[in-house]
Amino acid sequence: MLNTSTDRAIAVKDLKKSYGKLKVLDGIDFEVHRGEILALLGPNGAGKTTIVRILSTLLSQDEGTATVNGFDVRREPGAVRSSIGLTGQYAAVDEYLTGRENLEMIGLLYRLGEQETKNRSQKLLERLDLVEPSNRRVKTYSGGMRRRIDLAMSLIASPSILFLDEPTTGLDPHSRITMWEIIKGLAATNVTVLLTTQYMEEADRLADKIIVIDKGSVIAQGTPTELKASIGPDHLEIIVKDDDDFLNTLKLFETDVLQNDPKRRSLSIITKNGTADLKKVLSMLEESKIIIDSLSLHRPTLDDVFLALTGHSTSVEAERQTNASTTL
C-alpha cells in the first residue's frame, strides 16, 4: 500500500483555489520529506486550513497538483485517505459518545478489526493520559482533553502522514507543551507531520521547516534559524532611570546595541541565548551601578515576521512576547 519510491511525503505544486472572486490560494509550492515536521505559519485567513483540506481530500483544488504519500489527492483519494491522519482546526469528535467509543469507532472504520482496535485504543488512551475520562461522554471533556482524544482518533491507524490544523490553539501553556512533546515524539518515529500555527514560537520549537503564507501565497520558507535570521535576532530591551545611566549603558554594550532611544532612555541589545544573556547583562549593569527601570527579553513574533516580510502587520491578538523580567 505504501509508496516508498520517493522520500517526499507531500509535494504541492502551484496549488490554486478561489471562492468566487476571492483568491484563497494563489499558487502554493512546497515539499515535505518523510519524517519531517513542516509548519505552515500564517495569520487568520491566510489559507492554512484550505491547504490542509485539499491535502486531506476534503476539498478539491481549482488548479495545480498535490501528492500525499506519492498519491495524487484528486485521482487517488482513497489511497491518500489510507495514508493520513487528520486533526482539523475544530475538534472532530462525537459529543454523545465516550472517548473510548469515539476511538473504537474510528479504529473499526479504518478496518483494523475488533481486537486490534481495542488494543490500540487502550494504548493510545494511556499514552495521551485519557484513561480516567475514557468512559465519559466527550461532551463533558475540557478543551485540552478534546484535543487529545481528537489527536488519538487521528493516530489510531498509525498513519505515516499526519495533518494537524492549529493543534494547540486554545490550550493552556502546560497542555501546549504536552502537545509539542507528543508531536515531537511522533516525528521521531518517522511520521511526517504537517501542522499549521499562528505562533512563531510554536513553529520554532517544533518544525524542521517553516512555510510562511499570507493571503494565499508563500512569502518565505526555510528552517526556523534561517527565518529568524532574516527577521532579526532576539533582543534585550533595557530602560534606565536617568540620562547619565543611559550614556553609560550605551558605552557598556557598545557594539551589541541594536538601536537606542534617548528620549525613553531605552536601548536594545542583540542576544543569542536569551535568559543566560539576561543574567549576564543584569550583573554587568549592577557592577557599573546603573539603575534600571526595566529589562525585558523580546523574541521575534509573528508580527515581526510579517512586518519584515510584507510591511503590514497581522491581526493576531495574542502577541506572544516573552517578558523574562519585570521592573526591578
Binding site: M1, L2, S82, R111, E116, R127, A157, S158, E181, G185
Partner: peptide, 22 residues
Amino acid sequence: MTTLAIESNIQTQQRKPKILWY
C-alpha cells in the same frame, strides 16, 4: 509524557469484498 512509539506504519487492512466493507 514520553514519546509515542507507533508500532508500525502499515495499516492492518483486512481483506474483504467492497460491498461487505460497505
